[in-house]
Design a protein around this nucleic acid. Sequence first.
DNA 1: TCAAATAGCGTAGGGGTTGAACAGTTTCTC
DNA 2: GAGAAACTGTTCAACCCCTACGCTATTTGA
Lengths: 234, 234
Amino acid sequence: MNAELPPGLALAWGVQPAQRRGPKPGLSVEQIVATGIEFGDRAGFEAISLQKIAAQFGVTTNAMYRYVRSKDELIVLVHDKALGAPPELPAGWRAAGTAWVHALVDRYGERPWLLDVPIRGAPITPNVMRWAEVMLQAFAETPLSQHDALGCLMLLDGFARNYANLARQLGANNDVPVQAEQVGAFLVPRLIEGNYPMLVSLYTNAEYNDGLDDDLEFGLTRTLDGIEVLIKAA
Amino acid sequence: MNAELPPGLALAWGVQPAQRRGPKPGLSVEQIVATGIEFGDRAGFEAISLQKIAAQFGVTTNAMYRYVRSKDELIVLVHDKALGAPPELPAGWRAAGTAWVHALVDRYGERPWLLDVPIRGAPITPNVMRWAEVMLQAFAETPLSQHDALGCLMLLDGFARNYANLARQLGANNDVPVQAEQVGAFLVPRLIEGNYPMLVSLYTNAEYNDGLDDDLEFGLTRTLDGIEVLIKAA
DNA sequence: TCAAATAGCGTAGGGGTTGAACAGTTTCTC
DNA sequence: GAGAAACTGTTCAACCCCTACGCTATTTGA
């Protein structure tokens, strides 16, 4: 029956196929996943390949298929394991939401390649669901319905992902300010000619570089305020 | 000097290399980009490859490199072109924001593969910038600072992307409700055993399936409310 | 007219995922 | 204990993809 389940579901929950006969496996799914995470940490998401992991163990690529049904399956496992468990949240939904978003942003800061993992299908792996669970428990103190709490959770999650993604891009860009200048030199005339007054003003005033951390607080406050309006209305 | 610019920047703004001598090009960048979009529409993002586009024109893969410096460059062009121009927005920042998010969600609904396009670096292509421009102009009526307006824009953009992405996943899943049942059968016992009370309740009550459109309105209202709190405070 | 610039091709190499057939090893069963 | 079954990892083999180099043919400017 497990054959019909989405890739990675069974393995993510620790359901190993009961192996009876045959040679003992030289490797384990845990080892393989851990190596995948190592590669991701060292060289980004696209560095995670069955080939490289197999080479690391001095084994053929195809040997991987004894442990994992497909690369997709591996990715699901790597993603869940690399995300890890959520932290304990403080009391009060607002403090909890703040801590939750900060923790998630931090995780993405430590492992930016997690943002590159293509998400297919609903979250069904242990750690991902644990993140959802703890935030939903925090919302349980409010009069929000289950459905609304889920909506608010998605809102916070989306914001955290979006911010982390942005922070990564800007962080990467700051390494090459020379290029940024050249881009500006190329872009501004065309923005003027193409009638983009707001963006011209944004590019011309160098105002746009004052603290990425403030942007996190800014967006988080907006999002929480929006939720609070709903909670107070109930 | 153009050599130092990010891939796709020059071409996206219509700066073609002045070609003088030599055989006339059999193709044009526009044709190539249009074909790329066709493939994306028909078979998703990963179906966009230089090989397939070249084959479509009865040409070798390498011929593509006369028009485009790399695949990344092509992707940037395809993304901007496929996104297209934003609509005219109604007066009033709140109505404008609503229309803007709806329009963006609709675009992503028409071309879901746009969500798969990896975004490297700041938005620098004409259409993407135009979307930002029109929303920033709508915020210009408010007392928001440039910086805060940009923060709100990012908030709306993040929400639209996030929602569109979610809608796509759920839409795809709804095609195979059989699998969803199997997943539930597998998952619920483990959620109970693993102490996920909120998620168990969510899975058990079939409440979670009442209208995806409502979720859009829900999240949008929260987000706009959060922005409104800020605007009214100013 | 002729040389420079350029388009497209052939060849080649580097990654990557996946499948099928096969030898070897372990363990269950008769 | 012997044989059958199951399992691991290997080799061989397709098949995708992007990219670089060198070549020929073509067009155009000098």
